[in-house]
Design a protein around this nucleic acid. Sequence first.
DNA 1: CCCATACGGTACTAGACAGTCTAGTTTTTG
DNA 2: CAAAAACTAGACTGTCTAGTACCGTATGGG
Lengths: 208, 208
Amino acid sequence: MGVTLERQRTLSERKHGDILAAASALFLRQGYRGTSMDEVATAAKVSKQTVYKHFADKEDLFRAIVADSTPRSGAIVAGVEAAYASGAGGAERALERTARALIDGALLPEATALRRLAIAEAEQFPDLAAAYYGAGPLTGVGAIMGVLAQARDGGAPLPTDLATAAHDFAHVAVSGLIDLALFFPSQVVPDAVRAERARAAVAVVLRA
Amino acid sequence: MGVTLERQRTLSERKHGDILAAASALFLRQGYRGTSMDEVATAAKVSKQTVYKHFADKEDLFRAIVADSTPRSGAIVAGVEAAYASGAGGAERALERTARALIDGALLPEATALRRLAIAEAEQFPDLAAAYYGAGPLTGVGAIMGVLAQARDGGAPLPTDLATAAHDFAHVAVSGLIDLALFFPSQVVPDAVRAERARAAVAVVLRA
DNA sequence: CCCATACGGTACTAGACAGTCTAGTTTTTG
DNA sequence: CAAAAACTAGACTGTCTAGTACCGTATGGG
């Protein structure tokens, strides 16, 4: 998790990162109330006092790990845009790659865990839920709209209403699979199902 | 909540219902860990001792309220099927009513609260999450497939793959709105947005 | 009408948890 | 190299919580 082998990090910075990483793993797996500060300190191999040196209180630590995790949704979006441009084949193949990248990104364990956490704590931390929604679903659909615009410029037969098309594309591709991931945390969605959903998403927008 | 004015319920039965109702409201709003047994007893206007007379422990009570709430998803499904049959107009109008019923059902506050709860506790109570998924999303898509079959028999131009069509229909209609409800618990999705989603869902399946 | 059963209220046990404090050690830095 | 700052370990406070015990009162079937 961002532990990028920096050559001369100070001890304090290393501890800060350790605490964030440990808290991240615990909060994502056990939720806010299900995780204790003692657990965090132990998992980070750090004294409790040090935890409170770096973060004012539990809520502060929680906000920090969510703020730290949310940007990773941006990486998924970037992957989606890259998937369209890369590779061979016509618009249909390119859109299928796009859908597949979206699906694989959305089903990453950290992504689904963060989503579950944001939903679970939406009442207690509405600002975090809103931030997640903006960085995740919202920019995701925006990116897809951009890709569809490219495809239409390239001559693909797409509807005029690209906002609706992007919405349809995204939800046909990922919503059912995200449901599976949220309700069955331990299960992995098989490759064949992902491919089928990607095809369905392309089919939905490629006829107008 | 099932409090149907039965003429001569015994005191014990009344208390049982009071506890269920109070616990239901609290768990749905505050989650499992966020709700204490003292709170439940106070809200139900019952002594704590009585709570433990009716339910072995907190987990038992929680399972009871989820088991009590989940069947209500079935009522939503029934409403969806009824919406197709009722009213005037051709297949397109009927499908639009179907989508609208699905949307309104999914956005009921109790429905979204239960969904949030099932997702939040999916790791701790995987069996409850699975039961919810079966009673909610799964039977919902099944019901829509039935409606689409009816529509096709009536001459509507639908794809041959009705399972995929039902999946697409359901997710284009409700998934985006459910996201909104989950991430922004206090907001209400306006009527115009619901209507637009219903139209989009019909448009997606009515061209094959 | 009577007795088992359920109730209310409240006090209690036992443990978890957030956050503080102390006292001594290590790291950073000027 | 010395002072400042960050670290460790663990005890400690106050609060909350699940679940139990006690005891006196109300309910309701036989």
